[in-house]
């Protein structure tokens, strides 16, 4: 007991001394060169397998070493052509069984025609907006040397409506170090599972949290004043970067389920959707990129979506037909 006490006191004294020296040094010698901020990746934890409950069903999701959602039964390690999917929850299609998701079905359909020629990787994550997509493209998609990218911007209108800029509000790219960060590091290092369990047991069990931000209209008064220039800047930059790296890009417009939208909000939903989609159409036309006008192609009802904006199995099947057909057209063109 005495030995333990001595060790304990020594550790405390040592720690206090280190802190005193640390804080005294700047007055004696050097400038402070610490890095207090970093940029968040806004991705799922690489090398993880997710399982969670939603409406009584268990859904699985596998994340590879680069942070992409993959289906290992469809993808193989061989040197193949790759398609990357980029967007938010409506490209992620998380509440659809593994193998039946948008990216899984697109790749399966192409592989039936092209004899296992394609691998698919999904970078989408609920809540991401176009500024996050640009970041994903640069830090993790470009180094994989993709052949195709399917991308669909979402969550932009509501964010710009609320915060006027992607550089403001809760989804900016920074994380600044502070005392909470210290506890976060301890949590991430020593008890990540407990934290995630506690968080996911709340977040994933409440269906309304699964609805994309653009479909949650809070501030009706400001809707028509919202400036979408920043969206266009980020979106067009994304397209141009794909061109610089010779990536074939297929752009989808955002769709929604009119039957699930509150009657008082139907007109507003139409307005917001058309504003964003018109920019997507315009940029696509001006940049000469392939457009998949899902807004006009996907029927706006519960047959294809389980809520106001997320595809169900049938919806994934329908949209994957459209994407795979575009890829087939591009493959034929290239040959």
């Amino acid at each position: 007991m005495k030995t333990f006490k001595i060790i304990f006191y020594n550790i405390i004294i040592l720690f206090l001394l280190i802190i005193i020296v640390e804080n005294t040094i700047p007055y004696l010698t050097d400038i402070k060169i610490g890095r207090e901020r970093y940029i968040m990746t806004d991705e799922y934890q690489p090398n993880s397998n997710l399982k969670y409950l939603f409406n009584g069903e268990v859904y699985k999701k596998s994340i590879d070493e680069n942070g992409f959602s993959v289906n290992n039964q469809i993808n193989s390690k061989e040197n193949k052509k790759s398609i990357y999917f980029l967007g938010s929850s409506n490209v992620e299609t998380i509440y659809v069984k593994e193998g039946k998701r948008l990216s899984d079905l697109t790749i399966s359909k192409l592989n039936r025609i092209y004899d296992d020629k394609f691998n698919g990787y999904n970078s989408s994550k609920g809540g991401l907006n176009t500024s996050h997509m640009l970041k994903h493209l640069i830090f993790k998609i470009i180094p994989q040397k993709p052949d195709y990218i399917f991308l669909m911007p979402t969550n932009d209108y509501s964010y710009l409506l609320e915060y006027n800029s992607y550089n403001k509000g809760p989804k900016t790219h920074f994380f600044k170090s502070n005392i909470f960060h210290f506890f976060k590091i301890i949590k991430d290092t020593f008890i990540p599972n407990i934290y995630v369990f506690l968080r996911s047991s709340i977040e994933f069990q409440i269906p309304s949290l699964g609805i994309d931000d653009d479909l949650r209209i809070k501030n009706k008064n400001k809707i028509k004043e919202t400036q979408l220039d920043e969206f266009e800047n980020y979106f067009r930059s994304t397209i141009k970067i794909c061109k610089v790296f010779n990536i074939q890009t297929i752009i989808g417009t955002q769709f929604y389920n009119i039957e699930a939208v509150d009657k008082n909000k139907v007109e507003l939903s139409k307005y917001m959707n058309s504003k964003i989609n018109n920019i997507v159409r315009k940029v696509s036309r001006e940049e000469g990129t392939l457009l998949l006008d899902l807004d006009s192609l996907v029927p706006k009802n519960f047959k294809y979506m389980y809520d106001a904006g997320h595809l169900n199995e049938l919806g994934c099947d329908y949209v994957s037909d459209l994407i795979s057909q575009k890829v087939i057209d591009l493959e034929n063109e290239n040959n």
């Binding site: 990746t41 997710l50 399982k51 008890i191 369990f197």
Partner: peptide
Amino acid sequence: EKLLPVITLPVYSERTINLREHS
């Protein structure tokens, strides 16, 4: 903590992008 992965695993990425700047 060690038993939980049987049910679920981390969702939020530990990776961050390097922001090289002076404090």
